[in-house]
Write a protein that binds this DNA or RNA. Sequence first.
DNA 1: GAGGTAAATGCCACTGAGTGCCAAAAGACT
DNA 2: AGTCTTTTGGCACTCAGTGGCATTTACCTC
Lengths: 206, 206
Amino acid sequence: MNTATSLRERKKLRTRQALIDTALDRFTERGFEATTLDELCAAVEVSKRTFFRYFASKEDVAMAPTQDLWAAFLDDLRTREPSGTLLELYQETLLAALGRMPAEGWADRVLLSRRLAARTPSMNAHGLQFCDRTTRAALDVLRQRFGLDDPHDPRPRLALDMVVAAFHWALEAWTFHPERGDRDDLAGRLRDAFAALPGTVAMTVA
Amino acid sequence: MNTATSLRERKKLRTRQALIDTALDRFTERGFEATTLDELCAAVEVSKRTFFRYFASKEDVAMAPTQDLWAAFLDDLRTREPSGTLLELYQETLLAALGRMPAEGWADRVLLSRRLAARTPSMNAHGLQFCDRTTRAALDVLRQRFGLDDPHDPRPRLALDMVVAAFHWALEAWTFHPERGDRDDLAGRLRDAFAALPGTVAMTVA
DNA sequence: GAGGTAAATGCCACTGAGTGCCAAAAGACT
DNA sequence: AGTCTTTTGGCACTCAGTGGCATTTACCTC
């Protein structure tokens, strides 16, 4: 091969992106269940057999944008130098991963994806499951890098789940009440949610 | 009808329980995917059509035990008097719900169910999705009872997610390293996880 | 205890997701 | 050009899940 991105690779990326965009479009228009994979594949001019070489399931294709973020999170976590609390380490890692997402297009796809997930239980379930797998992978990284492998200490896991909870909150607020609907808007809400974490423990109801 | 539990109701409960127990048994033996609903229905001597009048999906039947717990959680949350922090309210509610589960049989079913879910992605996804729906329902209860309906305050949601995170931790530890494997064993681990929550925020990595 | 009612079940045909297999096409390299 | 390797398409198949309708079964009344 002569270039870093061969024709073959470029075609694959184009097919993948076409499937994602067309899927988000059709699912949003006609609904997730009402859209069949046969329709989608016909629109992208790809056989159903090929679809399943790119994505593991019908849900998967619509969740791709968020999955990119978590992949970047794991990637960043492997190299980031710790400073301060564990919670802060997680937070900085997630914000850094967010900063690595494409400035154009990515945020819009996430918006479509999340709104879709909110009214499609199987999509939401798929997303949560992916989140769960990612947090387990993140804990593995923690164990390998810092030796936090005391199976009786729940705190590394709990801290990670707190960050995920904050992320979900920020994502939902951003999805349904966006101010600008871009990456930085989401980052701002993430910071707000992170800031609210310590005070949450002491909150009283009355 | 003369008795509180008519013959009809008793039969329905028996069928439901037979489906759950047989499903847990077969899924554990041969694996979730390898077991078809036709097999399961044949074993319980019930038509597949009837199966879907009891459970919404193949995953659903194997997650029934945990769902009972969350139903009790919601139920208790509607009446419990708040005292102390919001986090403590959630914790007490969950422990109370746990206390209402049948002392016999329930814990064993949960054990089977969770071990199955750990090696069956679609089951795990289903469980997480149910958890998510329950937390949203719980937040609705909070709003109605205490007027915590400020959409800009993430803390009620975050606190609930913290309790859920602690629950997941406790459940997993109990599932794979049980001491006695009964309800009280799980309750003890829950208390440990709850106790670890406040210190989690300040934990440092180095 | 026979007969009517309503609920629960069974049966059948159907849709659509997802997979295995093998042949055909297309990019890569010499 | 020709050859090798990766990717794709087509086909047949399994199985989860659903709608519709006939059949059974518990319930209730006389």
